[in-house]
């Protein structure tokens, strides 16, 4: 799961995979804007065929948060 998530972040946000760590903060480390995060959510929804509520998006602070959420 971790690898899949990192692959998606890397492809959607055009960030080198080696710069994406489990504890990377989306806003501060990966320098994403809030709308980039929305973009990511759309990609996760498509890839995992799930629906992520808007209100849950703000829980996603780090890469790990996303992995944990998706594992659930």
């Amino acid at each position: 799961m971790e690898e899949k998530v990192i692959n998606i972040i890397s492809s959607v946000c055009e960030i080198d995979k080696k710069d994406i760590k489990l504890d990377s903060n989306l806003i501060n480390d990966l320098e994403l804007e809030s709308l980039d995060v929305v973009d990511l959510v759309v990609a996760f929804e498509k890839e995992f065929n799930i629906k992520i509520d808007d209100k849950d998006i703000k829980q996603f602070q780090t890469v790990e948060d996303i992995v944990k959420y998706l594992e659930k």
């Binding site: 055009e14 804007e33 809030s34 709308l35 980039d36 973009d39």
Partner: peptide
């Protein structure tokens, strides 16, 4: 402005 920046990024991303 955030939306303008997002549209701008999207356009370049698609082009790349």
């Amino acid at each position: 402005p955030t939306f303008i920046e997002m549209f701008y990024k999207q356009i370049w991303k698609t082009a790349r």
